[in-house]
């Protein structure tokens, strides 16, 4: 029977109930996307050719520059440099942010003590702290990692906190009614119920982290992608500068987009609640 084996694997199940129609529709929107991108590229090309600004390269020049940098390896090397503080910073933000968020969600005293700090950090322009960090830690890796952490951690923490707070109380009381201990309630109910929203927070944190690392490289020390941008700007190599910017934007979008895809693939059965 088809009913019984569709949900063998959770990821499999998420896709199994999407029949051909959905796929057809998504291909349809893909056409729109391609059309939209083509129009954008065309407009860019025309604007570049019109020569309204000496520094504005055409789309084709930019693509050529991107290709050139990809082939000569300068882009790859720059990405390796940029990814180092990004990955370290995100890993740190993730571990600290999620634990802090869960602790605040579970305990009122921790919430009272820590939540205001994170609320301030999320609403305030943390980027203003980046020059200060350089001031103290110099222009090394530490400063860049800190820049990532400062921008990424607040949103990860706040989302984890909200995720724990939004766990349906009836699920927790269900676990309690079957004599689950507090530890079992946290392990079997609260964490799984909170994970979709925590993951969404992680996605937002990654987006912020990209912002942080680029900002750090532009402000603190010209390395990696920031260096490519600054360098090509200083020698008036505008097509290369644009290409670098396009590549980092694309890279960030693709990363965040795949996280989003992963999110729906992992948690899709849970997005619809049990109500």
């Amino acid at each position: 029977m088809s009913l019984t084996h569709t949900a063998e694997k959770r990821i499999g199940a998420a896709r199994a109930d999407a029949p051909g129609l959905i796929r057809w529709l998504s291909e349809f929107t893909l056409i729109w996307k391609i059309l939209s991108i083509a129009l954008f590229a065309g407009a860019w090309e025309l604007a570049g050719r019109s020569g309204f600004n000496f520094s504005f390269p055409t789309f084709s020049d930019t693509v050529a520059a991107l290709w050139e940098m990809a082939v000569d390896g300068s882009l790859g090397a720059a990405y390796l440099r940029t990814l180092e503080p990004l990955v370290i910073g995100l890993a740190f933000s993730l571990i600290v942010g999620i634990s802090a968020g869960i602790a605040m969600g579970l305990r009122h005293d921790v919430e009272w003590f820590s939540l205001p700090i994170f609320i301030v950090m999320q609403a305030a322009p943390m980027a203003a702290l980046i020059p200060l960090v350089t001031f103290v830690y110099g222009i090394g890796l530490t400063a860049k990692v800190l820049a990532v952490v400062m921008l990424a951690m607040p949103v990860i923490t706040i989302n984890s906190y909200k995720a724990v707070r939004n766990v349906p109380p009836s699920l927790v009381s269900m676990c309690h009614s079957f004599m689950g201990s507090r530890q079992q309630q946290i392990l079997h109910i609260i964490i799984p119920a909170a994970s979709p929203m925590m993951f969404a927070g992680l996605r937002l944190g990654v987006a912020e982290g990209f912002s942080g690392v680029v900002l750090a490289e532009l402000l603190i020390t010209p390395t990696g992608i920031g260096d490519l941008i600054t360098f090509h700007r200083s020698i008036a190599n505008f097509a290369h500068m644009y290409a670098t910017i396009v590549s980092i934007v694309l890279f960030a979008i693709v990363t965040v987009g795949s996280l989003q895809w992963l999110e729906t693939a992992l948690f899709r059965p849970e997005k619809r609640s049990s109500q």
């Binding site: 959770r10 349906p168 699920l171 009381s173 269900m174 109910i189 799984p192 049990s274």
Partner: peptide, 10 residues
């Protein structure tokens, strides 16, 4: 037995 079923969606 709960009014809102209290099933674990995952």
């Amino acid at each position: 037995v709960f009014q809102d079923f209290a099933l674990m969606p995952w």
